[in-house]
């Protein structure tokens, strides 16, 4: 076992909590029952590391085996960095027929053509997702296993999720993906977040949505002693209406956990009380607005339901779940750079 694999294994053991490590080793299924028993997970981390290193040496396992272990852990615990979504475009006629073995071979072949030193590992997960681990090198250096890129792609869908990718590696990965999935292009889906499941659900619309319905209010009659029952009822109706519209815009129940949304606004300043600014020639008022929360969609839904945000919800905000994106460039004419959205007129 070389020094690099030893270091990677040490780091892996250090980062994974003891109980999770036990589970990961169980799933990995390479240790014999006796070996598994020899690892005492109540011991300090360095003792566990020593034991595992000894087992690896004994079996003459290499980097390949350490990365296997890492992949199993990452697949089970994917929320450890920023995930960025990409979308494949213009499928070829045979795009639908690409299956796993073919994809695997093609992807590895194309990427090694583009980069001299690269190490690729592909694993199919139970939920139909294909997980790819890439350790990048270049013409002069060996693949760096300490900083791998992870890519998740659901075959036969246009969606790709990527974490830890540098701008230099991006065109290489894009090229390999386009060729091996039989598409003609790939674009930034303008969606990113810390929870892989959340951005996947948003893009693939796998969460509970509410469709607009005009339904009769299910108001129960209020106690007659209330000072003004009509006002009460009206307020309750308004509240319920707001809640319904908030759910129509953002969804019902638990919502995908998105952390932020960013809007680059380059629109004119329009305010009837401020003539000077409104009449500024052709000049947009430039600003960037970032919304953040531990669960952005739930926060926004409550803003709308409580009246802090007016209903019906503006398309700018409802576009997050509707279009499955959280980065927008807003201009007045809608003909801005790649990712603009038309500014609603009011």
């Amino acid at each position: 076992m070389d020094d690099l694999s030893r270091r990677l294994l040490q780091r892996l053991v250090r980062r994974i909590p003891a109980q999770a490590l036990k589970t990961t080793l169980g799933k990995w299924d390479r240790l014999t029952a006796a070996q598994r028993q020899s690892v005492d997970f109540t011991q300090p981390k360095w003792t566990i590391t020593e034991t595992l290193l000894a087992i690896f040496e004994e079996n003459e396992w290499t980097m390949k085996h350490v990365t296997e272990l890492e992949m199993i852990h990452i697949i089970d615990n994917p929320n450890q960095g920023m995930w960025y979504a990409f979308q494949l475009m213009d499928p070829e006629d045979d795009a639908k027929s690409v299956e796993l073995t073919q994809f695997k071979e093609q992807f590895k072949a194309h990427l090694s053509e583009l980069v001299r030193h690269v190490s690729v590992k592909i694993k199919k997960h139970t939920d139909e997702a294909v997980w790819i681990r890439i350790a990048w090198g270049d013409s002069f250096s060996r693949p760096n296993h300490m900083k791998p890129t992870y890519v998740v792609h659901h075959l036969q869908t246009p969606y790709v999720f990527v974490t830890s990718l540098t701008s230099k590696q991006k065109p290489l990965l894009s090229q390999a993906l386009i060729l091996s999935t039989r598409h003609q292009g790939i674009k930034d889906a303008n969606l990113s977040g810390r929870k892989l499941a959340a951005i996947r659900d948003l893009l693939m619309k796998q969460y509970q949505q509410v469709f607009p319905t005009k339904y009769p209010g299910t108001l129960t009659e209020k106690n007659q002693t209330v000072s003004n029952p009509r006002i009460e009822r009206e307020q309750a109706e308004l509240g319920e209406n707001r809640f319904q519209m908030a759910c129509e815009a953002f969804g019902d129940g638990m919502l995908p956990q998105l952390q932020s949304a960013i809007y680059k606004l380059e629109t004119k300043f329009r305010d009837h009380t401020n003539k000077t600014m409104t009449e500024r020639e052709e000049l947009p008022f430039k600003c960037v607005v970032k919304f953040s929360s531990t669960n952005l969609l739930e926060s926004l839904r409550e803003c709308a339901a409580s009246g802090i945000a007016s209903t019906p919800v503006t398309p700018l905000l409802s576009s997050i779940p509707l279009k499955g994106r959280n980065y927008f460039v807003i201009t007045d004419n809608g003909l801005g750079p790649s990712s603009q959205t038309n500014q609603p007129q009011n």
């Binding site: 401020n274 600014m277 960037v288 607005v289 669960n295 926060s299 803003c303 409580s306």
Partner: peptide
């Protein structure tokens, strides 16, 4: 910071010249 559950934080960053123009106008 907006008092909803979970709390919502809004960061509003304005271009310096546009901020100054607005300030000048008021």
């Amino acid at each position: 910071s907006i008092p909803v559950v979970p709390p919502l934080q809004i960061t509003y960053t304005v271009n310096p010249q546009d901020a100054w123009d607005l300030w000048n106008s008021v």
